[in-house]
Design a protein around this nucleic acid. Sequence first.
DNA 1: CACCAACGAGAGCACCGATCTTGCTTCGTG
DNA 2: CACGAAGCAAGATCGGTGCTCTCGTTGGTG
Lengths: 261, 261
Amino acid sequence: MTDRPAPAPRTARALARETLTRDIVGAARARLAQDGPAALSLRAVARDVGMVSSAVYRYFPSRDALLTALLVECYDELGAAVEDAEAAQREHGLAARWLAACRAVRTWSVAHPGEFSLLYGTPVPGYAAPRDTVVPATRVVRVLVRVAADAHDAGARPVAPAAWPGVDAPVETVVARAREYVAAEGLFPGRAPGETTLRVLMAWSTLFGAVSFELFGHLVGSVDDGAAWFDAVAVRLGADLGMAPAGAGDGGDAAPGRRGR
Amino acid sequence: MTDRPAPAPRTARALARETLTRDIVGAARARLAQDGPAALSLRAVARDVGMVSSAVYRYFPSRDALLTALLVECYDELGAAVEDAEAAQREHGLAARWLAACRAVRTWSVAHPGEFSLLYGTPVPGYAAPRDTVVPATRVVRVLVRVAADAHDAGARPVAPAAWPGVDAPVETVVARAREYVAAEGLFPGRAPGETTLRVLMAWSTLFGAVSFELFGHLVGSVDDGAAWFDAVAVRLGADLGMAPAGAGDGGDAAPGRRGR
DNA sequence: CACCAACGAGAGCACCGATCTTGCTTCGTG
DNA sequence: CACGAAGCAAGATCGGTGCTCTCGTTGGTG
């Protein structure tokens, strides 16, 4: 929780423990990538590392703890992939950053379907994600918020829909908690508008849904080229946030809302 | 596959088989609702119906077959719920129909989280959904397409985004297969526009993502009121399709696209 | 050096899906 | 009506799982 500088594991035992722990996680990672989270058997990973199942319990108190370690590792890997992809486009404008971040989500997920299932699929029956996982889990959406914040700074505004009968809750209260979090983390210059905040959360839901549908086969017969489909989705999500590519329309990096109000 | 009229199970044996099969599915359904699909044990449902595990294999050749039966039952239940909700609003305009269909997706899913996990969660490791499941699985998206088609008929047009650099595939080809399906099923009067088709698929992905995030806890800390959050999402998805509630704006049931082109 | 904690191995528990054999009941038909 | 065939439930069995316990052994340290 606080500082854990890992002060040079002198003893051979501590060193062996560290490497063995990594070996176990690595073997579990391999099985996860191959068979998915539901088929991840503690005994199988024990065999893979040449141990007996009971010996693994010296390193992880339960199968759930091993799952948690994989969870944070995968969350961090995906988060880093998205962060790096976005950062690499920092010179190429908001649209390029948004598109790169979105594409990174799909790229990593398609390359790691088993890990994706672990992160975002059906939770394991009796398993409740511990606190350690929530911070790495937010890295992706933080990138999306940051790009949206810069777009907002550049003048991008999502179009607020007209009032629909029977839908009365104002946007600001729907995403009140999200706005508090964004403010507390300093992700937005000033106070994040409710409409933008909602659209980012919505975009994240859409990205996840699109990847999930593609990976789990809910789009067979409707979409052939997953990458092209995802690009089209990402472009529209960006446009819905008020973004426009550089050189399009009025020449600004971000176009203002498509209709005044 | 062909006609299977189930010609009045005369014999007591066939009747007992039918009721027992229903009992097994019912018990499995109860366990599914309580513990989720991963914890669905064939032995447990056998105990619930007062049988030995091996006896269940007289009725279902494997656990996967039982899962398939549950799958089609749940797909049909969700599909019927969405169809009924939409049909009930047929007199109240397109926006009301769209909102009702969207809400029905969430309502059923929140009421049946275990079943939702089975339908849309991580696929069971070695399980591949058989052909019997694809038709019931499409009922929800068919409703969405039908409402979008009627909205298109009334003049609703989604806004096509500006061209983004690096994204070149035209919309029509991205959703070509979906358009073929829609045309073959006669869901759209005339040929469905690519932009509308894509937006419907996108909306379905968003609805699924929003429900999934809420059910699996990916929104804790960001959204408190799941129903209000979902309403806000559904409204924007409808607006992105070009819909507007009756009486809003120019008074039409569906407003034309918010910006010319 | 002597002690103790960490360690790996093995046996064992309860549970799982799936298969096979063994009798018993019921059905349809000669 | 009777008898064979088919359907049926039960039990044993097999390999697998997560997890706990008890052993020797080994490594680090007072």
